[in-house]
Design a protein around this nucleic acid. Structure first.
Lengths: 120, 120
DNA sequence: ATATAATATATTGTAAATCAATGTATTGTA
DNA sequence: TACAATACATTGATTTACAATATATTATAT
C-alpha cells in the first residue's frame, strides 16, 4: 500500500468515463484510445482496454465496424450507440457532482457553478 | 455492467483521498468519517472503512489513540502522521492534475491555471 | 442480577476489475 | 519463405469494495 497505488486508483475510477468521452468525440480504434489517454496522463494497457470495450459493447453502449488498414490487420472502429450517448450524459453529471463534492470536502475553494452560486 | 457500476467505480477512486482529507482536518473516529462522507454523497461502509484505515495505519500515514466514550465502547480517534500529511499533498496535486486532464478530455471548458493560460 | 439494545471495532468470503504476460492472426518486407 | 510490425484477444494473479457476520463494551429495562 503505497501512494502510487492510491494515485492509480484515482485514475482507474474515471477510465470508463474517459473512454466513452473519447469515442463520443469520433470513431476510434483501440490504439487511438491508448494514445489519447496517454496524452491525458491516463495510461491504459491493452489487457485492460479490450475487455473493457467488450463489456461496453455487450452492455449496448458501443458498436464497432471493421475497417481495412493499409498496414496490418483490420481494425475495430468503435462508435457510441444512442444508449451510450445517454449513459455518457449521466456519467458527465456524476463526474461534475463528484468533483464538486470532493473539492468541497478538501476545502479546495473552486469556482462554483451558477446554480450553486445563486442557491440559498 | 450497468452505469451504476461505473458511477461507483468513479467514487471508489477517490475514497482514500477523501478519507485522508477528512482526517487531516481534525481527529475523527470511524463513525465520524462515515457521516462526513455521506454528507458529501460519497457513501462508505464499515466493512470497507476499517480495513482501509488499517492499511493506511500500517503504511505509516495514520496513527490513532483510544478515547473513552460516554455511551458505548471506546473509540479509535485517527490522526495524520507527518508522512501522511506529505502523502496527502501529493494526492491533492494528483487530484488537481487529473480533474484538469479529464475536464480537457471531455471538452468541459473549465477555468485553466495561470501557467497553462500563458503557455504556448 | 440478567437480558436486551445501542454503539463500536473487526473479520470472512465473494465478486469485480486492472495488470502483466502471453497468444493468435494479418500484412508488408527482406 | 522467414521475419517484423500491427492489431485483437485471453489467462492468471492481485487488489479491493462490499455484504454479512462476529466480538466486545456500555447503558437501560425488567
Amino acid at each position: 500500500m503505497d501512494i502510487q497505488n492510491t494515485q492509480s486508483q484515482m485514475r482507474k475510477g474515471v477510465l470508463e468515463f474517459c473512454i466513452l468521452s473519447i469515442i463520443q468525440q469520433g470513431e476510434v480504434y483501440p490504439s487511438d484510445i491508448v494514445e489519447k489517454m496517454k496524452l491525458a496522463n491516463l495510461h491504459i494497457l491493452e489487457g485492460t482496454l479490450y475487455p473493457l470495450l467488450t463489456r461496453l459493447k455487450n452492455a449496448g453502449l458501443l458498436n464497432y465496424r471493421w475497417v481495412e488498414s493499409i498496414s496490418g490487420p483490420p481494425r475495430k472502429y468503435f462508435v457510441m450507440t444512442e444508449e451510450g450517448k445517454a449513459a455518457f450524459e449521466v456519467l458527465l453529471k456524476t463526474w461534475k457532482e463528484m468533483t464538486s463534492s470532493v473539492n468541497q470536502l478538501t476545502q479546495n475553494t473552486n469556482p462554483i457553478s451558477t446554480s450553486e452560486a445563486t442557491a440559498s
